[in-house]
């Protein structure tokens, strides 16, 4: 941190310092706001007696660069999205699209029949179908009158 003694005629430069600190704070705050508030990729989950369907929005990623693993009832989606690199002579006006590595873990409320898990990637949306293990499907018990 800067602790500087300033003379009266130094008012302008101290204002600049304050401005700089303000900018740094802004950057810190915005970084924590964008990384901490929500996980990436955003995911929706549908469920039924048959199992679950997980859909994640991951635009701009190659399907080969997504790694899906399933251990017991924990689903993990890993991947990375490359950053657009500025070419010689290019300038950037706006950069809102996020890049980098991501890991997402979802705990499912049932055990999955791992042999029948299917994953599709279409138009930037990953869709994973997770059928419930046969042994865990709810069974209907019929009542017999005597």
């Amino acid at each position: 941190m800067l602790l500087r003694r300033f003379a009266e005629n130094d008012l302008f430069s101290s204002l600049k310092d304050m401005q700089r600190i303000q900018n740094q704070l802004d950057r810190l705050l915005s970084a924590s706001a964008s990384s901490g508030s929500l996980e990436f990729p955003p995911t929706n989950v549908w469920t039924s007696e048959e199992g679950a369907i997980v859909r994640s929005e991951i635009p701009g990623i190659e399907p080969e660069r997504v790694d899906i693993s399933l251990v017991n009832n924990t689903l993990t989606i890993r991947g990375s999205r490359g950053e657009e690199v500025l070419k010689e002579g290019q300038s950037c006006h706006r950069q809102e699209r996020e890049s980098g590595h991501f890991t997402r873990t979802l705990q499912l409320p049932f055990n999955v029949n791992s042999d029948r898990v299917e994953a599709r990637f279409c138009n930037g949306v990953l869709e994973i179908t997770l059928p419930r293990a046969e042994a865990e499907k709810p069974r209907k018990i019929s009542v017999v009158t005597e």
């Binding site: 929005e57 635009p59 657009e84 706006r94 809102e96 699209r97």
Partner: peptide
């Protein structure tokens, strides 16, 4: 949609995230 815009001397390049759009 979240968008990146890059400008070079002869063109503008615009990239927009639109997941689920055909």
């Amino acid at each position: 949609p979240r968008t990146d815009i890059f400008e070079s001397h002869d063109q503008l390049l615009l990239l927009a995230d639109m997941p689920g759009v055909k």
